[in-house]
Simulated assay, not measured.
Amino acid sequence: MADKKIIHSDNAPAAIGPYSQAVQVGNLVFMSGQIPLNPETMEVITESFEAQTVQVFENLKAVAEAAGGSLENVVKLNIYMPDLGNFAKVNEVMERYFSAPYPARAALGVKELPKGVDVEVEGILAL
């Protein structure tokens, strides 16, 4: 197996379990799911679904930059939401962080997410 490099950013929330923020293998970086935690306080952002989604993408951005890339390098996203009725808002927020050509994406409805948040996003970068 290729060498694994652990990616860490102090500008993203610390892992809240036995996992890394991201792992690089070759030119691919596998970013763990980010929830709307403020990295400084480790508190959940609760103002609105939009605010939660913005925080999630800010966290992903920080991890991507720690890996030596940016969100422009994202090739695949998986988005998890207990309420798929928020899908349009996710699209609106994503357009602030991504431009065409957009990454591949899946959106999945789930029963619940860690800490009761409304959105979680994981991604893969190609550097």
Rank of each mutant, 00 (worst) to 15 (best):
A2G: 03
K4T: 09
K4Q: 11
I6M: 05
H8F: 14
S9V: 11
D10P: 05
A14W: 09
A14R: 13
I16G: 12
I16A: 14
G17Y: 09
G17E: 15
Y19W: 11
Q21F: 14
A22P: 10
V23A: 09
V23Q: 03
Q24Y: 04
G26V: 08
G26M: 05
N27I: 00
N27F: 05
L28C: 06
V29Q: 07
V29M: 08
F30D: 10
M31I: 15
S32D: 10
Q34K: 15
Q34Y: 08
Q34P: 05
I35F: 09
P36C: 10
P36G: 14
L37K: 13
N38L: 09
P39I: 08
E40G: 02
T41M: 07
M42A: 12
E43D: 13
E43C: 09
E43P: 09
T46I: 03
E47I: 01
E47Q: 13
F49N: 06
E50P: 11
A51Q: 11
A51G: 05
Q52Y: 07
Q52V: 06
T53F: 10
V54Q: 12
Q55E: 15
F57V: 12
F57D: 09
L60F: 12
A62M: 15
A62Q: 13
A64L: 04
A66E: 06
A67I: 04
A67D: 04
A67W: 00
G68S: 10
G68F: 11
G69F: 02
L71H: 06
E72I: 06
E72T: 11
E72R: 14
N73V: 13
V75P: 01
V75H: 00
L77G: 08
L77E: 10
I79D: 10
M81I: 08
M81G: 07
P82L: 06
P82S: 07
L84C: 01
G85P: 03
N86Q: 00
F87P: 02
A88R: 07
K89D: 07
V90M: 03
V90F: 01
N91K: 07
E92F: 05
V93H: 04
V93Y: 03
E95Y: 10
E95I: 11
S99E: 13
A100G: 05
P101Q: 09
P101L: 01
Y102V: 02
A104Q: 06
A104M: 04
A104I: 01
R105I: 10
A107L: 06
L108R: 03
L108W: 00
V110L: 09
V110C: 11
K111F: 02
K111N: 06
E112W: 02
K115I: 15
V117H: 05
V117C: 14
V121Y: 02
V121F: 02
E122P: 01
E122D: 14
L127D: 04
